[in-house]
């Protein structure tokens, strides 16, 4: 702020800052508020805390329902991520190699799982998968989650490929490297930050997906978000706060990884490669 500001300007300056800080508080506080409640010894989800205890975590880890839903999520999400990332990276490479007729339409289709309302995806897949006998199977769930994760992989990897210098691939090819070697030894290491962040997005999408799962999964495939949905709907207990705290820890880890990847990517670009 300049030292010659009029009182009105000062008021405006601080009001503006206060407003912005308020918005940040609005964004972050709900997430922070639920963490201490998971260590509350009473069974009420309210402050002040009655005492500190780990009993809700014990309850969580002792519950078959919760543990099997966590297991299911860790089966479905990595498989869906692998599918989405592999296909998505290949397609992103193809998309950035030049123009072809109908490119805009293809791009539109590849991104559409991100914008089509999830209920519509869920009901459509419910009808279609029932005919293909994929309803209430892990495979069906993995296919569905992979489709939902694809747009994120496409967006992040194409963005990273914008900064990729195709002369490097040409140099490798002119030195006699076959296309696959060129991809794995030259291109992939350089676009790895984009591929990993795309994979993280795809993982988060699958790990948090509830609507489509509600339509496609039987109790045997019940995923963690589905279990949480049921828990919140019936009665919201401190066990929910405990699992929420674990999920927040997971999102902090993912956020830190993304930040690290972003810096790495900037450094790579800064070094002129």
């Amino acid at each position: 702020m300049n030292p010659y500001a009029t009182p009105l300007e000062k008021v405006w300056f601080w009001a503006f800052r206060l407003f912005c800080v308020g918005v940040l508080v609005f964004l972050i506080v709900p997430i922070l508020v639920i963490v201490p409640l998971s260590f509350n010894s009473s069974s009420f989800l309210s402050y002040p805390l009655a005492g500190v205890s780990l009993r809700w975590y014990h309850e969580l880890f002792a519950s078959d329902e919760w543990m099997s839903s966590i297991r299911n999520s860790f089966i479905v999400a990595p498989a869906a991520t692998l599918l989405a990332t592999t296909f998505g990276t290949l397609a992103a490479v193809g998309l950035t190699r030049g123009n072809f007729p109908g490119k805009a339409v293809v791009m539109g289709i590849l991104i559409s799982p991100m914008v089509v309302p999830t209920v519509i995806v869920g009901v459509g897949m419910y009808f279609f998968f029932a005919e293909q006998h994929l309803l209430n199977t892990y495979s069906g769930l993995i296919l569905a989650h992979a489709a939902l994760g694809v747009p994120f992989v496409i967006i992040t990897v194409t963005a990273t490929l914008q900064g990729y210098n195709y002369n490097l691939s040409r140099a490798a090819a002119s030195l006699g490297a076959p296309p696959l070697t060129t991809f794995f030894r030259v291109m992939l290491p350089l676009i790895a930050p984009g591929v990993i962040s795309g994979a993280l997005f795809a993982f988060a999408t699958s790990f948090d997906e509830v609507v489509v799962t509600l339509f496609l999964a039987a109790p045997a495939q019940r995923t963690l978000p589905m279990q949480m949905f049921a828990g919140i709907r019936e009665n919201i207990s401190p066990t929910i706060a405990a699992i929420a705290t674990l999920l927040i820890t997971l999102s902090v880890c993912m956020l830190l990884t993304m930040e690290w990847l972003r810096r790495r990517n900037e450094k790579l670009r800064g070094s002129g490669i």
Binding site: L27, I28, P30, I31, V33, I34, A204, F207, D208, V210, P225, M228, F229, I232, I236, I240, A241, A244, L247, I248, S251, V252, M254, L255, M258
Partner: peptide
């Protein structure tokens, strides 16, 4: 952080 946090966690919060 909210962007990366599960929708259900935020709803519960």
């Amino acid at each position: 952080l909210p962007f990366w946090t599960s929708l259900l966690v935020r709803t519960a919060a």
